[in-house]
Nucleic acid binder design. Structure first.
Length: 107
DNA sequence: TAGTTGACGGCCG
DNA sequence: CCGGCCGCCAACT
């Protein structure tokens, strides 16, 4: 069963409601990996192997930018998906990022 | 086994 | 203000 170390990471990502996003650093810090934001990125890379599904499109970098959109089935899927959730994305950048951002550290 | 990469973040120059 | 470097943990080659 969950022999994967990112298991908690996926759980946090799945906990993100539609229309909301979070950052790698927020997740990392939430798990105690404050400086290991890269690990969260690696976890996302493997996310597609995780079950049942991980809304990785709701995870962006600290700039509110769709840095990982190129890793999805289609590079446009991430933006289209976020827009479908009510977000506004221009130039691969989330508008009102701080408004939709869930900062677990501040929350 | 060792070296490098990776969907990042923070700090220094 | 902008650019570059180091640090984090795990996986890939």
């Amino acid at each position: 069963m969950s022999s994967n170390v990112y298991e908690p990471i996926y759980e946090v990502v799945r906990a993100i409601p539609a229309g909301r996003v979070t950052t790698y650093g927020a997740i990392a810090k939430l798990l105690g990996l404050s400086g290991g934001a890269r690990l969260v990125g690696w976890a996302m890379n493997k996310a597609h192997t995780a079950m049942p599904n991980v809304p990785a499109h709701r995870v962006v970098n600290r700039l509110g930018r769709l840095s990982g959109k190129l890793h999805f089935a289609t590079p446009t899927m991430m933006q289209e998906r976020l827009e479908s959730e009510g977000l506004t994305i221009i130039n691969d950048e989330i508008q009102c990022f701080a408004t939709v951002l869930i900062d677990f550290d501040t929350l």
